[in-house]
Design a protein around this nucleic acid. Structure first.
Length: 641
RNA sequence: GCCCAUGUAGCUCAGGGGUAGAGCACUUCCUUGGUAAGGAAGAGGUCAUCGGUUCAAUUCCGAUCAUGGGCUCCA
């Protein structure tokens, strides 16, 4: 008879087989009430699962991550049940758990409306009140197909048909609704309730744009009311950091209808851009890169040879003259190969690192555009390293270190690493792909980075490592990349002479750290909530006088600071100091220097930060040296100390 | 490109078949005030664009463009 071991090591003995729920009840009625499922010998099971032999058991409640996952999954089923009751003609498809919630895709004759959403949510709450038991049953594959065909659930039946015939499937039944599901689920709908339906969207069946579009409903679900409220509040706060909102507030840039997906940079935004560009230029020089500049408009034949016209022709902006067809360059690599190809290269020149702040244009699908994160005209901090096969590993390793030190200077610590491997449509031999994929994987492993593979997501000419950052609401954006390319140099006739006097084709590494200035600045703004570190702030200091009597002193102070290279402005308007401080604070100016009669007399300057911290008045030399330290350390040391 | 939503003053938004309204910003005047909004007056809009319905459209309908949320795509 079963002897159950709990996570704390204690054991309970039973004379007869017991369910997870029985054990929970044996421990205490409170726990039984909270029980959602169990983990038996490491495997997650329903609460009514019966244990007939000795086992290790942990009771799963909504406090566990597993419990929360279950809750979300069951809420997705609850939503499906509500949808089926309200719209019997709707067909169910899939409904997985995602970060913070779930979604479910339905096929229906018309799109759901926001009103429908409200109805569905209401019905869900009613079903929760009814505390409908959720029960598992098992069924053979063919029987399952028959069952769902019988319900006219064509999508479910299609999914099941793809499952091997000898597999036993599980069904979960809650009242009038039954769904195919691996489970486990919570014992009854009564355990659910802290959810909210978030948004409606279209989504292709099986993620394929050739298929019909389904109606997707996104929802969020939490263990209790407080967590749900907390989540909604966090979302609201995060939206305040949206780069489009801050871009407007701080007058950084704008976009307009006449140039969709192209950025108009304003003085403040362009200041940030230029500081970053100069920083990257300096860092790249240190790293042995040579900066170049290549044309914007290049004959289509080059893109045909490189393979881009074939794969991306539709997305290129073309320019036709009387008898020639050109394209706005969508990327820089083929142009960099042209630079490499001038003159006969020696192996002694390798690795040759060429860099360009390369302006590119791509006619992205209209629906893909997003603020300044995904645009049609952008500038890459592009670089190509021409090297021998033996040099790949070290170049990749050096590059990864370089990237890390740059990201650190900008204040990014959370980086997502992914390795994208060979896609179906590609150029180059499998042997080349084997070698280049391994080279990248080895480089990541050598740095002991936690990376994930994205099978089939590589570029058509080679595999790539992607370095991604998150925006304010957690969306992941690729910024940096390093890619190994055995194909393009050969296609574009790049050659060098090796030590033995023989002509060889070099390997090409494509790499970027920021990715594009546009996207990187967007992410940067969101991550800092617009409070850019001193070295990146468009206006670093603002001098605010109290009355006209300090006009001359203020102007002198401005000149002293500006002579030292600081970006400083003076607000001499006939306005009250409270207003001047308010406006400078809203512009996220790091330091405000308030000048009144007292300061003119003492020569000591009080500094107020954008976070309303007031520093001890200091003399000009102290201020300047403190600011310089903050700049040089890129904010690791601050004037505040 | 596909699905849904949105488009009204520089910005944030309200309104609604009879040619428009608030707050902030802007301009002028008063105020020289010590740490997040001093006061008053004024100016400002082909209600995204193009068509349709109507005696009448900014409002209803359709198309287009753009933006937002997803999907797909992302060299």
């Amino acid at each position: 008879m079963p002897s159950i071991t709990l996570p704390d090591g204690s054991q309970r003995h039973f004379d007869n087989p017991v369910s997870v729920m029985d054990v929970a009840a044996d421990i205490g009625p409170g726990l039984a009430k909270a029980t959602l499922a169990g983990r038996v010998n490491g495997e997650l099971v329903d609460a009514d699962t019966v244990l007939s032999s000795d086992a290790e058991l942990s009771i799963i409640t909504s406090r566990d991550d597993d419990g929360l996952h279950l809750l979300r999954h069951s809420t997705a089923h609850l939503m499906a049940q509500a949808v089926k009751q309200l719209f019997p003609e709707a067909q169910v498809t899939i409904g997985p758990v995602i970060e913070d919630g779930f979604y479910y895709d339905f096929a229906y004759e018309r799109p759901f409306t926001p009103d429908d959403l409200e109805q569905i949510e209401k019905r869900m709450s009613e079903l929760v009140k009814q505390k409908i038991p959720i029960q598992r049953s098992e069924i053979g594959r063919d029987k399952a197909v028959e069952f769902f065909d019988g319900l006219s659930e064509a999508y479910k039946a299609e999914i099941i048909r793809d499952i091997p015939a000898d597999e036993v499937l599980s069904l979960y039944e809650q009242g009038d609704f039954t769904d195919l599901c691996r489970g486990p689920h919570v014992p009854s709908t009564g355990h659910l309730g802290h959810f909210k339906l978030m948004k409606l969207a279209g989504a292709y069946w099986r993620g394929d744009s050739d298929n019909e579009m389904l109606q997707r409903i996104y929802g969020t679900a939490w263990a209790n009311k407080k967590d749900l409220k907390g989540y909604l509040h966090r979302l609201e706060e995060a939206e305040k950091r949206d780069h489009r909102k801050i871009g407007k507030q701080l007058d950084l840039f704008h976009l307009q209808e006449e140039a969709p997906g192209m950025v108009f940079w304003h003085p403040a935004g362009w200041t940030i851009y230029q500081v970053i560009e100069q920083y990257m230029r300096d860092r790249q020089r240190e790293q042995g890169y040579k900066e170049i500049r290549t044309p914007q408009v290049v004959d289509m034949s080059l893109w045909e040879r490189s393979g881009h016209a074939d794969k991306f022709g539709d997305d290129m902006f073309s320019v036709e003259t009387d008898d020639r067809k050109f394209a706005l360059k969508p990327m820089n690599c083929p142009c960099h190969v042209q630079v490499f190809n001038q003159g006969l290269r020696s192996y002694r020149e390798l690795p040759l690192r060429l860099a360009e702040f390369g302006s590119c244009h791509r006619n992205e699908l209209s629906g893909a555009l997003h603020g300044i994160m995904r645009v049609r005209g952008f500038v890459q901090d592009d670089g190509h390293i021409f090297c021998t096969e033996e040099q790949i590993q070290e170049e990749c390793a050096t590059f990864i270190d370089f990237l890390h030190s740059v990201y650190e200077d900008f204040g990014f610590t959370e980086i997502i690493y992914r390795l994208s491997t060979r896609p179906a449509q590609r150029v180059g031999s499998d042997a080349d792909w084997d070698r280049s994929e391994k080279a990248l994987a080895d480089a990541l492993d050598a740095k002991q980075l936690d990376w994930k593979e994205l099978p089939g997501e590589g570029a058509f000419y080679g595999p790539k490592v992607e370095f991604s950052l998150k925006d304010c609401i957690g969306r992941v954006w690729q910024c940096g990349t390093v890619q190994v390319d055995f194909s393009m140099p050969g296609r574009l006739d790049a050659e060098y002479v090796d030590a033995g006097g023989e002509r060889k084709v070099p390997v090409m590494l494509h790499r970027a750290i920021l990715g594009s200035f546009e996207r990187f600045i967007g992410i940067l703004v969101e991550n800092h909530e617009g409070k850019m570190p001193l070295w990146l702030s468009p206006i670093q200091l603002k001098i605010l006088n109290i009355t006209d009597r300090q006009r001359e002193f203020s102007e002198k102070l401005e000149k002293s600071l500006s002579d030292q290279g600081f970006r400083v402005e003076t607000d001499l308007r006939n306005e009250k100091i409270g207003l001047k401080i308010r406006e400078a604070t809203l512009l996220r100016v790091p330091y405000m220097l308030v000048v009144g009669d007292k300061e003119v007399e003492s020569g000591k300057i009080p500094v107020r930060t954008r976070d309303a911290v007031e520093l001890e008045p200091m003399d000009l030399e102290t201020l300047i040296s403190g600011l310089k330290l903050e700049l040089a350390s890129r904010g690791r040391e601050t004037l505040e100390g």
